[in-house]
Nucleic acid binder design. Structure first.
Length: 561
RNA sequence: GCGGCUGUAGCUCAGUUGGUUAGAGCGCUUGCUUGUGGCGCAAGAGGCCGGUGGUUCAAUUCCUCCCAGCCGUACCA
């Protein structure tokens, strides 16, 4: 046989080996482990507590909606693989997995408009699905937790949402050093765009480009945004992004809006005066370049931004004027209840998703750089967002129904808090493990009785204080060492051993695994380690429950120190 | 979608200037110890060297295309 033939035979043999099915999930979908699930549940309980306190009630809608109810086109006619996951029902109607909880709420409200009391205040949580490229903390299936007020036309409803957002974050134990809620009004932006000559359908694309550029101010800084508003910019990978093509005067006018908000100082964490001065000089530069004539307020306070905006030459523009008024109203409410300048601030760079918002928009972001699993700092984005959507219900009913609401990205927030190590770690105790020494029916029944006794424990007043417990359900002939190892790796606090010898004497061995692990550090010889049976005691069978309770109490006291 | 980087054992990663049988650490299984976790010692299992096509006597290594992952960018109603 030649080398070549030998090689081919080898190849054929290789090919014949049956290919194993690769175990994997679709991109952007994840399996969630016990600790993540418990963390998510505890977060959701906290969110719910806040929403209930604000007077919101739960409602639930299905994961599927008819595609047109989501306000999207069929997947094959518009963008084939972008946005929603869709499928055709057996009656050939297109339906889609919901991509958020707002559109389904609008549908629900419109459908039940005659039975629902307005203002209709509800919250709901659930998984939503987006057919997009996943990123850090971004999945294709993720949990959102929404609150909305339908039938509330006044900016006070928007202000309330900002407050509730802040309160929810505080419920997680975060402080105003950890997060910030930002709000803005679409009207302000629309008015600005109109004022600098970007009104009309023919400028729709440029308006989009401008808004998206503004949105990036935090991340890229003013210099880069100026490029985006002008000719365009190259990113780190040398990829070129086309700009909006504005001239210097137009860019300067946008700059005034963006910079004026930066003058705000925070009551609890005042900016150093050097930074404030720098902001002032940047703003003065922009004003000079734009040709606007503006005087500055004497003192630093929360209203100076409005003060400056009101002097802009295009404050006669009705949209812009309405925007300034709206911002002032929201600011007033937030200021009176001491949120403004602490957890919440006006920020003209807060733009949000572009289509359905009609007035106030708001979002919440963490003030930390979030690392990924490898410890690299990555762009994380906001953890909650929302706004006013006065036109959404109208699509179904034909009548104007004002509404405002927001959604918390629970999955993303959990990922962020986890990566920042700000999440309470999983403190759920493993179960007490009853080891199986004999596999005859009588012995097995005895083990089962022990776990039942522990599970159904009651305190003196008769309240259930059941202890997590299980008997070893693996191979009943498994060696004791194997069972102990199982208990150890499960994080069990206690193992219980009863062989025929103990049974005859009416006793059980109760082993404190936590204490035992501590003692093991001083023992290097295995024989000694085994024979010394560290932290193990022999007690009467009827004292089992009391002994276990005592050890658990001791361990708890130890942990709490 | 566009650009860059990376794909070798369950995990983290070596290595092959193209050559016979591809390595380490951790993890896993078993034994020393037939009734005791940890440590130690010993043995063992586990690889389409991401896939396809090509160049070559010979490809895990070089080339093409594809796929996947990461980062950036764009999009995100």
């Amino acid at each position: 046989m030649t080398d070549q033939q030998a090689n081919q035979t080898k190849k054929q043999k290789k090919k014949k080996k049956p290919q194993k099915l690769k175990a994997r999930q679709p991109r952007g979908f994840v399996d969630r482990q016990a600790s993540d699930i418990r963390a998510t549940e505890s977060m959701m309980a906290k969110i719910k507590e806040v929403y209930e306190r604000y007077g919101f009630d739960p409602v639930e809608t299905p994961m599927f909606e008819y595609t047109d109810a989501l306000g999207k086109f069929l997947p094959d006619t518009d963008r084939p693989n972008a946005g929603v996951f869709s499928l055709q029902d057996d009656d050939e109607q297109w339906m889609s997995l919901r991509y958020d909880l707002t559109a389904p709420l609008a549908r629900h409200f419109a459908q039940n408009i005659n039975d629902l009391q307005t203002p209709y205040r509800t919250y709901r949580a659930g998984y939503v699905f987006r057919n997009e490229k996943p990123g850090p903390g971004r999945f294709r299936q993720f949990m959102q937790f929404d609150a909305d007020t339908v039938g509330a036309p006044n900016p006070s409803a928007d202000a309330e949402m900002c407050m509730m957002m802040a309160d929810t974050m505080r419920q997680f134990g975060l402080t105003h050093y950890d997060f910030r809620v930002k709000f803005n009004s679409r009207k302000l932006l629309d008015g600005l765009l109109e004022a600098i000559g970007l009104a009309g359908d023919e400028n729709a694309n440029r308006r989009l480009t401008v808004l998206r550029s503004i949105d990036k101010l935090d991340r890229l800084g003013m210099d880069q945004v100026r490029l985006l508003l002008g000719k365009g910019r190259k990113d780190d990978s040398d990829d070129f992004t086309e700009g909006a093509g504005l001239d210097a005067a137009q860019i300067s006018q946008i700059e005034i809006l963006l910079l004026s908000a930066k003058l705000n100082t925070f009551a609890e964490a005042p900016s150093p005066s050097s930074i404030v001065e720098q902001r002032y000089s940047e703003l003065k530069d922009a004003i000079e370049r734009s040709g606007e004539i503006i005087s500055f307020p004497t003192g630093l306070d929360q209203n100076q931004t409005t003060f400056i905006l009101e002097q802009l030459s295009f404050n006669i523009n009705s949209n812009f004027k309405a925007g300034v008024t709206e911002i002032a109203q929201i600011s007033g409410i937030l200021s009176a209840s001491r949120y403004l300048g602490r957890e919440v601030e006006f920020d003209p760079t807060c733009v949000r998703g572009l289509e359905y918002y009609t007035g106030a928009v708001y979002e919440c972001e963490l003030l930390y750089e979030v690392p990924n699993e490898k410890g690299e700092i990555v762009q994380f984005g906001s953890v909650a967002g929302g706004g006013r959507y006065d036109g959404l219900v109208k699509r179904f009913t034909g009548q104007d129904i004002p509404a405002t609401g927001f959604s918390i990205g629970v999955s993303r927030l959990m990922t962020a808090l986890k990566n920042l190590k700000m999440l309470e770690t999983d403190n759920v105790l493993g179960p007490v493990v009853v080891c199986v020494m004999d596999s005859d029916t009588e012995a097995l029944a005895g083990y089962q009785q022990m776990v039942q006794e522990l599970r159904s424990a009651k305190d003196e007043k008769g309240n259930p204080v059941g202890i997590r417990a299980e008997m070893y359900q693996g191979n009943p002939n498994a060696k004791l060492g194997k069972q102990m190892q199982y208990a150890d790796r499960r994080g069990s606090p206690i193992a219980i051993i009863e062989g025929s010898q103990e049974r005859e004497e009416g006793v059980v061995q109760v082993k404190d695994l936590v204490e035992g692990a501590k003692l093991s550090e001083e023992i290097t010889d295995n024989k000694e380690w085994r024979e010394s049976r560290p932290a193990q005691q022999t007690v009467k069978r009827e004292d089992l429950l009391a002994t276990v309770q005592k050890i658990l109490a001791e361990q708890k006291a130890e942990r709490d120190v």
